[in-house]
Computed example of a mutant assay.
Amino acid sequence: MNIKFWLNGIQRQEEVDPGMLLIDFLREKGCYSVKRGCETANCGLCTVLMDEKPILSCSMLAVRIDGKKIVTLEGLQKEAEEFGTFLANEGAEQCGFCNPGFIMNVIAMLRELEEPDEEQIKEYLAGNLCRCSGFVSQTASILKYLNYKKTQEEA
């Protein structure tokens, strides 16, 4: 099946098998930040943005991105690097396997919620699993990042 879509800002046209999962399709296209975790849509490792909204690529067929804008972590390097510094400073990166999906959801949350509080952050990120921590350091890094972004806007 032939589909047209945007991947990280570049319009593409590809032939795709109707039964192929989006996660496999994206990894074939070099988007290795998209990780395979639970394969049951429960861990958030495979999170990408579709038309600015986070989706789980392990539970979506690739043909459904026809006409859509898909963004992976590879397409958000500047934002990801900026926030990643806050994760590292809090010791929240641990093994790093869950970071890409986690960062994708944090970026989506910041685009959707103007000034999320700690409870909203926890609720928004409830679908992300990290086997190394209890998200204390991750939450602290988000709050510090939000404060940093707020002071940048005021400057």
Rank of each mutant, 00 (worst) to 15 (best):
C95N: 02
C130G: 11
P116N: 05
C95E: 00
V106M: 04
S57R: 09
L76Q: 03
F97E: 02
L7S: 08
Q152V: 15
L22P: 13
M60V: 12
P116M: 09
I10L: 09
T40W: 12
M104W: 03
A92R: 03
A155G: 14
V63M: 11
N105E: 10
V16W: 06
K144W: 02
T151A: 06
E81R: 09
G9I: 04
E28G: 15
E93S: 12
L125N: 07
C130T: 09
C38L: 09
I65E: 00
R36H: 12
Y148P: 11
F97L: 06
F83V: 03
A80M: 01
L21T: 04
G127C: 08
S141P: 14
E81H: 02
K149T: 14
M50T: 11
G127K: 00
E90M: 02
E154R: 13
I70M: 01
G75V: 00
G96D: 01
T85A: 01
E28T: 15
L76W: 00
E15S: 15
P18W: 04
W6H: 11
D24A: 03
K69W: 01
S137Q: 15
L73E: 00
A92K: 03
R64H: 10
C43Y: 12
L129W: 05
D66G: 05
K4G: 10
S59I: 05
G127L: 05
G101S: 04
G9H: 04
K4C: 10
I121C: 04
L146V: 15
L143Y: 06
N8M: 07
G44P: 11
T139I: 14
L45I: 07
T139A: 13
N128T: 05
Q13R: 14
C46I: 14
I103P: 05
I55C: 06
M104G: 03
D51C: 09
E93D: 04
K150C: 07
K29A: 08
V63S: 11
L146Y: 02
N89D: 07
I70W: 02
L61D: 07
L125I: 05
E15N: 15
M20K: 15
L129R: 08
M60G: 01
A41M: 12
K122R: 13
E153C: 07
K35R: 13
E114K: 14
G101A: 05
A62N: 08
E82V: 01
S57T: 11
A126I: 08
V106H: 07
E119I: 05
N2C: 08
T40F: 11
A140Y: 06
N99T: 13
P18H: 06
Q94F: 05
D66C: 05
G37R: 13
E154V: 07
L87E: 02
M20D: 11
I142H: 02
F25T: 12
T40G: 11
E115P: 06
K53P: 06
E119F: 01
M104I: 13
T47L: 11
N42H: 12
N42G: 12
M60D: 03
S57H: 09
Q94K: 07
D66A: 09
K68Q: 04
T47W: 09
S141N: 06
C58Y: 04
S141G: 07
E114S: 15
